[in-house]
Amino acid sequence: MDAARYTDRSEAIRNLRVADIIMTRTKHANWLLRGIRKMSHSYWNHSALVFEVIRQKDQEPEVLIVEALDKGIEIHRLHSYLNEKDFDIGVKRVPGITDEERERILGFFLDKIDTPYDYTRLFGYMLNRIVLKLANVKVRDMIAQRIINIDNFVCSSFTQRAFYLGVAPEKRDRVMFKENAGTNFLYQMEFITPGDIAKSKTAEWLYNPHD
């Protein structure tokens, strides 16, 4: 794994830009969050995106993030994840994003506010894991086609869609976080976990790298 650009959290926060990816790990995680980490073989259980950075004189900037939570796509302050007792955070950035593309990504955020969370997808992920374990059969294609509601999001599919639709069409291949050649497009776009984003070389680590 490559080293992060910043080793100090405050320095990383001071240098955040719109569309940077915030990875979070809930320290006192419930069974669902632990399940997400286990299923994706990752340290992280959630991803969010920087929505706005409000810079203030002589103070750490106020950072707003956009994320898919149980009530849907919502905007919150990064502050809520800075309590080290409850959360660990990491920061990644997709390189080569232009200002115009960041504006388009911001437009995507605003368009998707209040879009519901895709609970059926979580059910699908679990179903895939159970069937794989019991019968050694992957049912992910069936899940991708029949269970996933592509109008709704989980945290990581929201992140993937924002980059895919935000960048220039000729750059779309370069912002896919699942890099396995041969997988189908729907699977790449929608069957994605925070672990896929954490492990992907599409985005570079700015702070606190963990797979």
Binding site: E103, R104, L106, L110, D111, I113
Partner: peptide, 14 residues
């Protein structure tokens, strides 16, 4: 806090 701007991709006031 944001006025709708279909050209930028969002068609609702926020």
């Amino acid at each position: 806090i944001f006025t709708k701007n279909p050209e930028k991709g969002y068609s609702s006031n926020i």
